[in-house]
Each structure stands twice: as C-alpha cells, then as structure tokens.
C-alpha cells in the first residue's frame, strides 16, 4: 500500500466543510487564507497573529473570520484543521499548543517543519500520538514538472540512478542593503530555500531517506551553501543553494539526474528526458495540465491546499507528513554542522 493511500484510524469521510484556523498572518498566512476561502470543502473560520496591530487590521479586512492574538483562543471554535504559517522558530510551540490543548488534530505546517531536527522529531511524535492528518508545505511536490519527473523515475525511465545535481537559487538577498540578520531569522539559506531541493531529493530518491545517507562535504560562503551526499547504494548527489544569485527574481529549483540509460533535467518550468537510445523529449508546464480552479501566486499552492483539505475530509494520510518532512530538517542540521565544523 502506498503511504499516500492509507487511511487514518478508520474514521468515515466527512461532508461538511473543513473548518480551518490559520496561525501567522504574514504573506504565507494571507496566501493560504485566500485559497482556503475559495476551496469548496473548506471554511476559513479563524486566524491568529501575535501582533495586535495586525489583528486590528485583519479584523477590518476579514469580516466574519474570528481574529485572535493567541492560538489558545482557538480552543472553543471546534476547528478541524490548523495552518501554521508563523515564522519557523514558532512552529514547534504552536503545534505543541494545538495538540496538547486539543484545539485540532489536523495540522498543515509551512516549510520547514521546525527550527531544528530535535523539534521536528518531537512534532512528528506528537502527530503520531494525537492522530489526524499532518502535512508540511513543500509546494514543489505539487508542481507539474517535478511530479512528472518523479513518475519517470518511478518507471525507471533512465535506468539505475548514479548521480544527481540539485540547485536552489534566488536573488532575494543579492542586495547587501538588506537586513543581514533577516536571513538568519528565516533559519539560514538551507532552511529558507535549500529545503525545497532537499525535500524533492527525498521524494525522488527514497533511498536517501534511510539513516545510511552521509554528508560527504559541506561548505558555506555568505548566503550560499554547497554539499554532497551519498547513500549506502552508491547514489551520489550534489546540492548548491544560494539566495544571492543574479537573475533569479523568482526562486528556482532544479535537478540534473544521471541514470544508466539516460538523464533527466527538471526545474520549475521544464522537464527534459534524454534517453541513451531515443530522442530527447521536453515537456513544459504548458504541456502538463497546469491549470487550477483558482490561481494565486502559483498553481502549486492551490493543489497543495486542495490536497490537504481533501485528505482531512477523507481522513487520509497526506504527504509530506511530519515524519517524512522531519528528514529534511535532519539533513539541514547535518549539513549545517558539517559546514560549521569545516569553518
């Protein structure tokens, strides 16, 4: 049985809209709140931000939505699911409160799951203990190009995998005029941006999820990190992450994957399959049914939210679950410690 198809503790499907509360009213909170408000099977019921100024603003903006400044005030709202879109360093605290105060059993947490692997592991344990559906917002799993790449890999379209190269670039911190502490407050370049490439690698190459994966090198220069990995079966990978790269106004993640019978190159917009014995095939977003019922930011966001809400409604496991996403936090921690150790 695939993990995405398993049922959670045998509850029946529900037909009422899933009542959702959103914690953290920054840009991601606003984006998810908006999509939740158009999903036919969801109801944006409440929102929370610790800033009282933002609460005052959102009370005027979101009439009919209960706005509070403390997540514990969600307790009497009979919510089905919580979206945690607060800064990463608060994810554990918010999730712990939601579980222990029995505010809701279903949680969606924006990436990364936690501020460090220890907290990620504890969140995963809490999710196991309390049941319900849990998921982390790695939106690129919902991009048509990466989804197609995973299908090709699953069908061994390029044979036995040997090496891969992954990158994640943005220009977000190219200007030195920005607040130098801001990147640190977002958890550093790996947590802010590199996590997308790591999550996709874990999704593409399930072997990397075992404990046998080792970080063979790691270097950090300013806003960039480079590291290599290897698993017990000899698959070798290289990651390069930078958020001060020129010409990446929009962040981009991509992979070159080498197999015994060909190669796959994929990024957010395009996928190329180069087989050893056949002509190359290229697919663009345009070729891969990229339309969604409601467009906001990227179509991936709609698909991601729709999938989570559907999973809650059908009491079905969602991926990447906390357990699955905690492995990304583990790799980030291994790389960060490795890079620090190497100076």
């Amino acid at each position: 049985m695939t993990s995405s198809g398993s049922l959670i503790r045998g509850f029946a499907c529900r037909h009422d809209p899933v009542k959702v509360g959103v914690v953290g009213l920054g840009k991601m909170g606003l984006l998810h709140s908006s999509i939740l408000n158009v999903l036919p099977n969801a109801e944006l019921t409440a929102a929370c931000d610790k800033s009282r100024t933002l609460c005052r603003f959102f009370r005027k903006l979101l009439k009919g939505v209960r706005i509070v400044d403390n997540v514990e005030k969600f307790s009497d709202l009979d919510l089905d699911a919580i979206y945690v879109t607060a800064p990463i360093r608060f994810h554990f605290l918010v999730a712990k409160t939601v579980y222990l105060k029995t505010i809701a059993r279903n949680l969606f947490v924006e990436k990364t799951l936690a501020w460090n692997h220890e907290e990620a592991r504890k969140m995963s344990d809490l999710a196991d203990q309390f049941g319900g559906v849990n998921m982390v917002g790695y939106l690129r799993r919902f991009a048509v190009t990466f989804k197609k790449a995973r299908d090709l890999l699953a069908h061994e379209a390029i044979g036995k995998l040997t090496t891969f190269r992954a990158y994640a670039y943005s220009s977000d911190f190219l200007s030195s005029k920005g607040n130098p502490a801001a990147l640190s407050s977002r958890g550093g370049v790996l947590r802010d941006l590199g996590c997308h490439a790591i999550d996709l690698a874990l999704w593409f190459f399930e072997d990397l999820q075992t404990d046998s994966v080792s970080i063979t090198s790691a270097t950090r220069t300013g806003d960039s990190t480079r590291f290599t990995v290897e698993n017990a079966h000899g698959l070798q990978g290289e990651f390069e992450v930078s958020c001060s790269r020129e010409n990446y106004r929009m962040a981009e993640v991509g992979f070159s994957i080498q197999g015994s019978e060909g190669m796959i190159e994929v990024n957010d917009d395009k996928l190329e399959l180069k087989s050893s014995d056949k002509e190359s095939i290229t697919w663009y977003r345009h070729d891969l049914k990229d339309n969604v019922p409601y467009w906001l930011g990227l179509p991936e966001y709609y698909r991601e939210d729709s999938y989570f809400i559907e999973s809650v409604a059908k009491r079905r496991r969602a991926d990447p679950s906390f357990d699955c996403a905690s492995k990304t936090d583990r790799i980030i921690e291994l790389v960060t410690h490795g890079a620090n150790a190497r100076g």
Binding site: G26, S51, L54, D172, N179, A182
Partner: peptide, 16 residues
C-alpha cells in the same frame, strides 16, 4: 508585488 515580497524577506517580514 514581487519586489515587495523580496523586500519583506530582507526586512524581516511585513512589519519590517
């Protein structure tokens, strides 16, 4: 919008 999002990232979120 995209420039403001980038600036928000640099400035430490919407309050910044």
């Amino acid at each position: 919008a995209y420039e403001y999002i980038r600036l928000a990232n640099q400035a430490g979120g919407i309050p910044g």
